Measured scan of single mutants.
Amino acid sequence: KLPPGWEKRMFRSNGTVYYFNHITNASQFERPSG
């Protein structure tokens, strides 16, 4: 389970998975720990 605010997303163009935090508007490719 991801830390609060984080969700898994995917770029439609190339299928790359990334993680987005809707609380802080942060995004990263590494899976957030917590």
Score class of each variant (00 low, 15 high):
residue 8 K to S: 06
residue 10 M to V: 13
residue 26 A to M: 14
residue 27 S to Q: 08
residue 23 I to R: 05
residue 5 G to C: 10
residue 25 N to L: 14
residue 7 E to G: 09
residue 29 F to Y: 11
residue 29 F to M: 08
residue 31 R to P: 11
residue 10 M to L: 11
residue 1 K to E: 15
residue 13 S to P: 11
residue 26 A to D: 09
residue 9 R to Q: 03
residue 1 K to T: 13
residue 3 P to E: 03
residue 33 S to R: 13
residue 29 F to S: 06
residue 16 T to Y: 14
residue 22 H to L: 15
residue 22 H to I: 15
residue 10 M to K: 08
residue 27 S to Y: 15
residue 24 T to S: 05
residue 26 A to R: 13
residue 31 R to K: 08
residue 12 R to K: 13
residue 32 P to S: 03
residue 33 S to T: 13
residue 30 E to K: 05
residue 8 K to A: 11
residue 17 V to H: 07
residue 29 F to D: 06
residue 29 F to L: 11
residue 34 G to P: 11
residue 25 N to K: 14
residue 10 M to H: 10
residue 13 S to D: 11
residue 20 F to Y: 14
residue 21 N to E: 03
residue 7 E to L: 09
residue 25 N to A: 07
residue 6 W to E: 01
residue 11 F to H: 12
residue 11 F to M: 13
residue 32 P to K: 02
residue 18 Y to L: 02
residue 30 E to V: 06
residue 19 Y to A: 00
residue 19 Y to F: 07
residue 31 R to D: 10
residue 24 T to W: 10
residue 17 V to P: 09
residue 12 R to F: 09
residue 33 S to V: 13
residue 23 I to S: 04
residue 33 S to W: 12
residue 9 R to I: 05
residue 27 S to N: 03
residue 4 P to I: 09
residue 16 T to N: 10
residue 11 F to K: 11
residue 11 F to E: 09
residue 31 R to Q: 06
residue 22 H to K: 12
residue 19 Y to H: 06
residue 20 F to M: 01
residue 34 G to H: 12
residue 1 K to M: 10
residue 16 T to H: 11
residue 25 N to G: 15
residue 24 T to D: 07
residue 6 W to M: 01
residue 4 P to R: 08
residue 8 K to M: 15
residue 15 G to I: 04
residue 16 T to E: 12
residue 29 F to H: 07
residue 7 E to T: 11
residue 13 S to M: 05
residue 9 R to S: 03
residue 2 L to E: 15
residue 14 N to A: 11
residue 3 P to Q: 03
residue 13 S to E: 12
residue 26 A to Q: 15
residue 12 R to W: 10
residue 5 G to M: 02
residue 13 S to Y: 09
residue 34 G to V: 11
residue 3 P to V: 02
residue 11 F to N: 15
residue 16 T to P: 09
residue 6 W to N: 01
residue 34 G to Q: 10
residue 30 E to S: 04
residue 6 W to S: 02
residue 9 R to W: 03
residue 14 N to V: 03
residue 2 L to I: 04
residue 32 P to R: 00
residue 16 T to L: 14
residue 12 R to N: 14
residue 4 P to F: 11
residue 18 Y to W: 06
residue 10 M to G: 04
residue 14 N to S: 14
residue 21 N to H: 06
residue 17 V to N: 05
residue 4 P to Y: 14
residue 8 K to Y: 08
residue 20 F to P: 02
residue 29 F to E: 05
residue 23 I to Q: 06
residue 10 M to F: 14
residue 26 A to K: 13
residue 31 R to V: 09
residue 31 R to Y: 10
residue 5 G to V: 01
residue 6 W to R: 01
residue 19 Y to I: 00
residue 11 F to L: 14
residue 6 W to I: 01
residue 7 E to N: 04
residue 17 V to Y: 12
residue 21 N to D: 04
residue 17 V to R: 04
residue 15 G to Y: 04
residue 2 L to K: 15
residue 24 T to L: 04
residue 19 Y to T: 00
residue 27 S to K: 14
residue 29 F to V: 08
residue 16 T to V: 14
residue 33 S to K: 10
residue 14 N to G: 09
residue 31 R to T: 07
residue 24 T to R: 06
residue 26 A to V: 15
residue 18 Y to G: 03
residue 28 Q to W: 06
residue 29 F to R: 10
residue 20 F to R: 00
residue 1 K to S: 15
residue 2 L to C: 10
residue 30 E to F: 05
residue 10 M to N: 06
residue 23 I to V: 10
residue 3 P to T: 01
residue 30 E to A: 05
residue 22 H to S: 13
residue 28 Q to N: 03
residue 25 N to R: 11
residue 8 K to G: 04
residue 15 G to P: 01
residue 20 F to V: 08
residue 17 V to W: 07
residue 28 Q to S: 07
residue 29 F to P: 05
residue 23 I to N: 07
residue 5 G to N: 06
residue 9 R to V: 06
residue 7 E to P: 02
residue 14 N to P: 04
residue 2 L to D: 15
residue 18 Y to R: 03
residue 31 R to N: 07
residue 31 R to W: 10
residue 22 H to E: 07
residue 6 W to D: 02
residue 23 I to W: 06
residue 14 N to I: 06
residue 34 G to T: 12
residue 26 A to I: 15
residue 20 F to H: 09
residue 12 R to L: 14
residue 6 W to Y: 01
residue 4 P to M: 09
residue 6 W to G: 00
residue 30 E to G: 07
residue 34 G to S: 11
residue 13 S to T: 13
residue 7 E to H: 09
residue 24 T to M: 01
residue 2 L to M: 06
residue 10 M to R: 13
residue 14 N to K: 10
residue 21 N to V: 06
residue 31 R to G: 03
residue 19 Y to Q: 01
residue 8 K to V: 15
residue 33 S to I: 11
residue 25 N to Q: 13
residue 17 V to T: 07
residue 22 H to G: 07
residue 26 A to N: 08
residue 23 I to F: 13
residue 20 F to T: 04
residue 17 V to D: 01
residue 9 R to M: 09
residue 14 N to M: 03
residue 10 M to W: 13
residue 24 T to K: 03
residue 34 G to W: 15
residue 25 N to Y: 08
residue 2 L to F: 05
residue 22 H to F: 14
residue 15 G to F: 13
residue 4 P to S: 09
residue 33 S to D: 12
residue 7 E to A: 08
residue 7 E to D: 04
residue 31 R to F: 14
residue 32 P to E: 01
residue 7 E to V: 13
residue 32 P to A: 02
residue 20 F to K: 01
residue 18 Y to V: 02
residue 31 R to L: 09
residue 27 S to H: 12
residue 16 T to K: 15
residue 17 V to I: 13
residue 15 G to M: 09
residue 20 F to G: 00
residue 15 G to H: 11
residue 18 Y to M: 04
residue 17 V to E: 09
residue 30 E to R: 05
residue 32 P to V: 01
residue 2 L to H: 00
residue 21 N to S: 05
residue 30 E to D: 11
residue 29 F to A: 10
residue 19 Y to P: 02
residue 33 S to F: 12
residue 27 S to P: 00
residue 12 R to I: 13
residue 27 S to I: 15
residue 24 T to H: 03
residue 18 Y to Q: 03
residue 30 E to Y: 05
residue 20 F to L: 01
residue 4 P to N: 08
residue 32 P to T: 01
residue 12 R to Q: 11
residue 11 F to G: 07
residue 3 P to A: 06
residue 19 Y to R: 00
residue 6 W to A: 01
residue 10 M to T: 12
residue 26 A to Y: 04
residue 32 P to G: 05
residue 22 H to M: 13
residue 1 K to G: 11
residue 23 I to T: 07
residue 10 M to E: 09
residue 32 P to I: 03
residue 30 E to I: 06
residue 14 N to Y: 09
residue 33 S to G: 14
residue 5 G to Q: 02
residue 24 T to G: 04
residue 1 K to D: 15
residue 8 K to D: 03
residue 9 R to G: 00
residue 18 Y to E: 01
residue 7 E to W: 08
residue 5 G to W: 04
residue 6 W to F: 01
residue 2 L to R: 03
residue 2 L to V: 07
residue 1 K to R: 12
residue 5 G to T: 00
residue 30 E to P: 06
residue 23 I to H: 10
residue 29 F to T: 08
residue 6 W to P: 00
residue 25 N to E: 08
residue 13 S to K: 12
residue 29 F to W: 11
residue 14 N to Q: 09
residue 6 W to V: 04
residue 12 R to G: 15
residue 1 K to P: 15
residue 15 G to S: 07
residue 33 S to M: 13
residue 3 P to L: 04
residue 6 W to T: 04
residue 22 H to T: 15
residue 5 G to Y: 05
residue 8 K to T: 09
residue 6 W to H: 02
residue 18 Y to K: 00
residue 15 G to W: 05
residue 12 R to V: 12
residue 9 R to N: 03
residue 23 I to K: 07
residue 26 A to G: 05
residue 23 I to P: 03
residue 4 P to L: 08
residue 34 G to K: 08
residue 32 P to Y: 05
residue 33 S to P: 13
residue 31 R to M: 09
residue 10 M to D: 00
residue 10 M to Y: 14
